[in-house]
Amino acid sequence: MTRIDARFEKLRAEGKKAFVAYVMAGDPDFDSALEVVKGLPGAGVDIIELGLPFTDPMADGPTIQLAGQRALAGGMTLEKTLETVRRFREGDQETPIVLMGYYNPIYSRGVDRFLADAQEAGVDGLIVVDLPPEEDDELCIPAQKAGLNFIRLATPTTDDKRLPKVLENTSGFVYYVSITGITGAAAAQSGEVGPEVARIKAQTDLPVIVGFGIRTPETAEEIASVADGCVVGSAIVGEIADGRSVEEILGFVKGLAEGAHRA
């Protein structure tokens, strides 16, 4: 059982939905980003998604693109992202961390080396948005063998013919993208999301977590009520971009987490 599996088991026992928070590693700099990451569990975050900075993040909107650019300009690397995880693990051995990003930095490092380093650092799962199921032998299968969950995205355009292929080697949870398009682009609607979550859950026992388009505690509650939890990324990254203090950022996250946990 991975930390992700254990966390969902705990949440089920407590009758709670999951709140997942995304932040970009190294944004705006290594030290302040690390401070935010370390503070997320205390703000009510159940699972941390840590963005892996990359020069061409095609699934992301301007907010997260700019976060990646700030991180890269500040000298952030894959190695420093793993160091962020190591430093976090010095004080927290329970909160799951999922690295979210693109395949190029992993490929450049070498899959075997990356997986060994990620496991050693304390990474629990991967979301690699530009590797389709047809490429599972490339990273997904080796990751599972190394003890890491490989989390796949389903979208409004993932039809019933495609869905079984998407779910085939997925583990940890399914990330349902609530809107068609890039991150931070529109608001999620529970009336549209609910039937899609039900459709996915009819084909898998995995938890289904909904992301994209969630910016307020009210929307977090609304979306979490029709799923197993929700993810907020762009809204949190936007607070960082606006130069908020660590305390202000974590206060904002706390409100979102409380919304999701009310569901």
Rank of each mutant, 00 (worst) to 15 (best):
G184F: 02
Q144L: 15
G39Q: 06
A188I: 05
P62D: 13
D5M: 12
R70D: 05
G211L: 04
L11N: 09
P96T: 07
A220V: 03
A154H: 09
T170C: 15
F114S: 01
K38F: 06
L153M: 15
G122M: 02
E120V: 07
V166Q: 11
V45G: 01
I236Y: 00
I200L: 12
P142L: 07
I223C: 06
V208H: 04
F150T: 05
M1I: 11
A198G: 11
A186W: 10
A143I: 04
G75N: 10
E83M: 11
Y102C: 07
Q203M: 15
A224T: 07
M58L: 15
Y103D: 11
E49L: 03
G91H: 11
L148Y: 04
D60Y: 08
E192K: 13
L167R: 12
I106R: 01
I240F: 08
V23I: 15
G51I: 03
I240L: 13
D117T: 09
T157C: 07
A188N: 03
L126G: 00
A21I: 01
V253S: 01
E135Y: 11
R162G: 05
E218H: 09
D29F: 12
E9H: 12
T180Y: 12
S32V: 14
A43F: 07
I214E: 01
D228T: 04
G255N: 08
Q93R: 14
A71I: 04
E168L: 14
V208A: 08
E221T: 10
G75L: 06
F54D: 07
R109H: 11
V128Y: 02
A118V: 04
A13T: 14
R3L: 05
I223R: 06
T216Y: 05
P133T: 06
A13Q: 15
N149W: 07
T63S: 09
G110P: 03
T157P: 05
V197F: 03
R215H: 13
A18H: 04
F173S: 03
R86M: 10
I214Q: 03
D46C: 06
I182H: 12
E90N: 11
R86E: 13
S178G: 12
Y107V: 10
P156C: 10
I47L: 14
L72K: 03
P195K: 09
F19I: 01
E247W: 06
A202F: 09
K254E: 13
V246M: 05
D60E: 14
S108N: 14
E196S: 12
T157R: 07
F173N: 02
R113E: 14
K17N: 13
A116D: 13
M24H: 09
D117M: 09
A71T: 05
L148G: 00
G233P: 01
L163W: 03
P133Y: 02
P133L: 05
T180G: 11
A220D: 04
E90L: 13
E192S: 14
D124Y: 02
Q65N: 13
V98L: 12
A33Q: 07
F30C: 02
P207R: 05
D5A: 15
V36D: 00
V237I: 13
P142M: 04
R7Y: 04
G184R: 00
T155E: 06
L52G: 03
G211P: 00
